[in-house]
Write a protein that binds this DNA or RNA. Structure first.
Lengths: 197, 197
DNA sequence: GTCTATATGATGATAGAC
DNA sequence: GTCTATCATCATATAGAC
């Protein structure tokens, strides 16, 4: 990876491909876009993309790996890591609400889960790690939040974290099928239950 | 539809196609199987399937329409409709647990939501109706359950129903990505929260 | 190092045989 | 009424031009 540490305003071709592929992935699914679609949009030939990502498997794996790097970076940002738990949870909800506002994109997990068995093994492995790390992070947030009295739930933090993340991924899918309303309803219900009054 | 009211032990070709297509749909996703896959498995040529379902859109729409008919039939069965609310909820959970035991199949909604924008309009419409009717049914179950003191939750029955169904669909997706454990954990959490102790 | 012309096979669908 | 031979198109991927 020769990508500069400080993102340029004019992304290189590799990054432009990744960004566009991510658009397609989150809007139409991994098995519903092709190198032709990418090439047409980028104004190049399909084989030009094969240079940067020899196979679609490579491209897909790079997409999930990038998202995993982003998760770790986000989670460790001072403006996230140093927040109190209830605001960390709000920051997480904001990410999903941002997806909703971005043409009702589903999240990475929600995009790949149904097609999971058709994905290349490295991509499956990256997605498992992504989901595991996110769940572990939220479990920790919930544990601290309950201990300090700002968050409320029964059962174990790990179970609640798995449930909440699953619900959020699903809520974006429901928004995709209907409209923004059910997402708002579901997240409203989560807030009602989690935030200690 | 010339399908007999009493299902035969030797399904006709049309039904065999639908059954197999449903297998593929719930195990690999709508954009990850072809008429060739179906034909090879059934021992016929791809074009034979085109006779029964002229386009893949027709096949997909028939799949969702059949599931909608099944939902209505199930919901109205005396052994479901006449149960007390907490047992109706258990019957619903049993459907999802059955999916889990069936090679961790996702549910219809969970299978189609991510690819939704690539689906033909009639299929989209059927899926919306399917999800709406299921949510309305569960909202009614939850409302009666809370009124009679056997189920417990805050917020509106409609919001809780949307949240629970979304969580169940998502839980099967998580099981697909990892293993059965997170599904059990999530459904255990749902039970802990919903069933009045 | 970056991309284009081209190959090979799979895909959805039609026209016509039985 | 049911299915097969065949088609045009699109898929991923390679070999080689610039």
């Amino acid at each position: 990876m020769l990508t500069p540490a400080t993102p340029s305003l004019v992304p290189d071709t590799r990054t432009r491909i990744l960004d566009l592929a991510e658009d397609f992935l989150l809007e139409r699914g991994f098995n519903a876009f092709s190198y032709q679609h990418l090439a047409k949009e980028l104004g190049v030939k399909p084989a030009a993309i094969h240079y940067h990502f020899p196979s679609k498997d490579d491209l897909g794996t790079a997409l999930v790996a990038r998202q995993l790097r982003r998760l770790r970076k986000w989670r460790d940002l001072p403006r996230v890591a140093d927040l109190p738990p209830q605001q960390q949870l709000e920051a997480l909800l904001a990410v999903y609400e941002n997806h909703l506002g971005h043409d009702r994109r589903v999240c990475l997990f929600g995009s790949l889960a149904a097609d999971f068995r058709t994905l290349p093994a490295p991509m499956q492995a990256e997605l498992r790690t992504f989901n595991r790390e996110l769940t572990e992070w939220l479990a920790q947030v919930l544990a601290v939040g309950r201990a300090t009295g700002t968050l409320r739930f029964v059962g174990s933090p790990a179970a609640k974290a798995a449930q909440v993340l699953t619900t959020l991924a699903g809520a974006l899918q429901v928004a995709r099928v209907h409209d923004e309303t059910p997402f708002q309803v579901i997240v409203g219900q989560l807030r009602l239950e989690l935030f200690a009054s």
